[in-house]
Each structure stands twice: as C-alpha cells, then as structure tokens.
Amino acid sequence: MGDDFYSRVSDGGDGMKTKEPLSGKYTGFPWGHVIGYMGSILLTLVALWLAVNPPFSQGGIITILLVLAVLQILIQLIFFMHITESRGPAFHTLAIVLGFLFTFAVVAGSIWIMTFNSQVQ
C-alpha cells in the first residue's frame, strides 16, 4: 500500500457520500491490474500448451512450468498484493520471502530425501 493511500484514508475517505476521489493520483485506469490479469492468463495458457504438447523432454518441461509458476506468483505479489509499495521498512516482504524459503526447503527436501527410498528398504 502506498504512502498516499494511507494518509488519504486517514484524511477521511467518506466515498459513499461524496463520491469524490480522495486525491487525483489514483483516478486513472487501473493499468497495473489489467497488465497483471493479461499476464496471468497468458502464462496459464502457455503452461497448459507446454504440458499438453511437450516439445521436448519431460524434465525440461517441468523446469519451465515451475519458472512460469514463479512468474505467476510474482504477478500476484507485485500487481495485486502491491508488495513493493509500503511505508516504512518492508517487514512484510521479509516475512513472505521467509515463508517461500521454508516452502522451498520443505518441498525440495522431501523430494530429495525420497530419492534415497530404494537404498534404505
């Protein structure tokens, strides 16, 4: 959330009665959201096409699908959750990055450890 947004709501954002924008800055067309939406639809269709008609080996496709998923997540975080806009230190970014790090460690670690399954049985 941007600076101006919070300060403008504090100024009294009684939009229901006045129907006036709190400031002229955000009155424009929501380009960020439209770009984010188009991008996410495009990435979804590319991912589906790659999964249905794999042009090369499966290992390579899975890597590309994971890269596309990361791009999708970045679109959500940047265009919709506005993670880059904050007043003061970005503690929320630190928290969510740590969450993703834990996710990667738990998921990748589980897959890795299971590759030794045949050796211990």
Partner: peptide, 23 residues
Amino acid sequence: FLLLTSSYTCGLAMHALKNGHAR
C-alpha cells in the same frame, strides 16, 4: 480462470478503495 479473474476483480475493488468509491 475463475480464480484468476476473481483475483483481478478483487484488485479492481482495491483500486476503487484507493479512489474512495465505496459503491
């Protein structure tokens, strides 16, 4: 597509909030 679109419309709701359009 339903969930992606709903995320987009939720973003438009946020845009309306930033502009102070309660309706």
